[in-house]
């Protein structure tokens, strides 16, 4: 073996990693480029429109930076941006817990029992297409403050989690159940040692999609008597105040927060499937 070929053998794993790294870099570069083009088009459109309701990205970013330092509208909005983000995250998280606690067992049950599915599928399909916002008046009339917000956001998260879990159960490989049974597993053990873990990845996808839907409902949900702020409440309030720069700053912040949460959930999915 010549010195050269030894050097080549030693370097091979590094060159392969380097190639993969370069591909990753390309992706990051393209993403940054896409972001730049997005801001550029937004800027041009804002300048062209010359409307207070469509501020330039520069103004929005400025408002965003300021909103972290001090409450943007004193009396009307006494909270800083980080407080708004924290309040919304709290609502999304508790709504997600409620929705998952209901959707996962229901999805498992319906996937496992064709009779339960035959019984419940039609009512659930009737409720599913109703947008969470349509429930606003109902929530205000029936539920206490706080619970109504939870209800609206949970509705948005519930169905993606439920449907994905149901579909996941149906797709569980029959062979895995056969294998478990021939290894001595009883019915309940098959359920929590095979069907539940086999369904997990798709349930997690449902959670990710559901939380995304949850963010979409948050402006409507936080229009309901909110006492401690939140991104949805903030966007709504600053829109009412004709403070469009801060309103857009809230919208941008909602997008960023939701994006980061989704990324975090993808990482969690990968880690769970490891």
């Amino acid at each position: 073996m010549s010195a050269n070929s030894i050097a080549q053998a030693l370097l091979r794993p590094f060159t392969r990693r380097a190639r993969r790294l370069r591909r990753e870099w390309d992706k990051v570069l393209l993403a940054v480029l896409g972001l730049l083009v997005f801001f550029l088009l937004w800027h041009e459109a804002a300048v062209l429109a010359d409307e207070p309701a469509l501020p330039t990205p520069g103004k929005v970013l400025e408002a965003l930076r300021d909103s972290f330092d001090e409450p943007p509208a004193g009396f009307y909005d006494p909270w800083t941006m980080q407080e708004h983000v924290y309040q919304s995250l709290k609502k999304i998280a508790s709504s997600a817990l409620v929705a998952i606690a209901l959707a996962v067992p229901l999805g498992l049950l319906l996937g496992f029992s064709p009779r339960a599915e035959a019984f419940l599928a039609v009512p659930l399909e009737l409720v599913r297409p109703i947008p969470p916002i349509a429930w606003l008046a109902f929530a205000i009339a029936i539920l206490t403050t706080g619970m109504d917000v939870l209800f609206i956001i949970s509705l948005g998260i519930f169905f993606p989690v439920f449907l994905n879990t149901l579909d996941g159960v149906k797709k569980v490989d029959r062979m895995l159940i056969d294998a478990a049974e021939t290894l001595g597993a009883r019915r309940t053990q098959v359920f929590y040692k095979v069907i539940f873990p086999a369904t997990m990845p798709q349930t997690m996808t449902g959670v990710r999609v559901g939380v995304g839907v949850g963010w979409m409902t948050i402006v409507a949900a936080e229009m309901l008597g909110v006492r401690d702020g939140g991104l949805g409440w903030m966007i709504w309030t600053h829109g009412q105040l004709d403070d469009y720069d801060t309103m857009f700053a809230g919208m941008l912040m909602l997008g960023i927060t939701s994006f980061l949460i989704a990324r975090g959930l993808i990482a969690l999915e990968r880690w769970l499937q490891r």
């Binding site: 062979m175 056969d178 478990a180 290894l183 001595g184 040692k193 873990p197 086999a198 499937q273």
Partner: peptide, 29 residues
């Protein structure tokens, strides 16, 4: 029943379990 072990053409291993935890499945249940 556990007195008859089956081996499948498609292997039918539990993909979320490590080799050791696959082997221990029958003992676990």
């Amino acid at each position: 029943g556990a007195d008859r072990g089956m081996i499948f053409q498609s292997f039918a291993l539990f993909p979320w379990r490590s080799v050791r935890r696959n082997i221990e499945f029958g003992l676990e249940v």
